[in-house]
C-alpha cells in the first residue's frame, strides 16, 4: 500500500511489529496487515497509517498491548498488535528491540 511490490523496504532496520515496541518508546504506524474489517475498526479509533503510538505497558506472554495514541489509551489484543507494523522514531535512547 505504501510501496511498490518488490521494491526495497525503506528503513527496514527501524521497522517493528507493534507488540515488539518497548514500553515508553514511540513509533509511527506504517502498515496494517489485515482485512478491511480490522483496518476500519483501528482507523475509527484513530489508529491508522501515520498515527504516532507510544507503548504504555509491557505484557506477559500473549497478553494485550497497551498503547497511547491521540491522547487516549487503547488495549489491543496480541494477535492484532502483531499485524501492525511501526517505524520507531529517532532519538530514542536505547536501540530498537529487534536486532537484525
Amino acid at each position: 500500500m505504501l510501496r511498490e511490490k518488490g521494491a526495497p523496504i525503506p528503513h527496514a532496520d527501524r521497522l517493528l511489529l507493534l507488540n515488539e515496541l518497548q514500553p515508553g518508546r514511540t513509533g509511527v504506524i506504517v502498515e496494517i496487515v489485515g482485512g478491511r474489517g480490522i483496518c476500519n475498526r483501528l482507523q475509527a479509533m484513530g489508529l491508522c497509517i501515520g498515527s504516532r503510538v507510544r507503548r504504555v505497558a509491557s505484557a506477559i506472554g500473549r497478553g494485550p498491548v497497551v498503547v497511547e495514541a491521540r491522547g487516549a489509551q487503547f488495549a489491543i489484543g496480541f494477535g492484532m498488535a502483531s499485524r501492525i507494523i511501526v517505524e520507531i522514531e529517532n532519538g530514542g535512547q536505547d536501540p530498537p528491540g529487534r536486532q537484525p
Binding site: 487516549a72 487503547f74 489491543i76 492484532m80
Partner: peptide, 10 residues
C-alpha cells in the same frame, strides 16, 4: 475468539 480492542478510559 476475536481479539481485544478497546479504549481504556482515564
Amino acid at each position: 475468539s476475536p481479539e481485544l480492542l478497546m479504549e481504556i478510559p482515564p
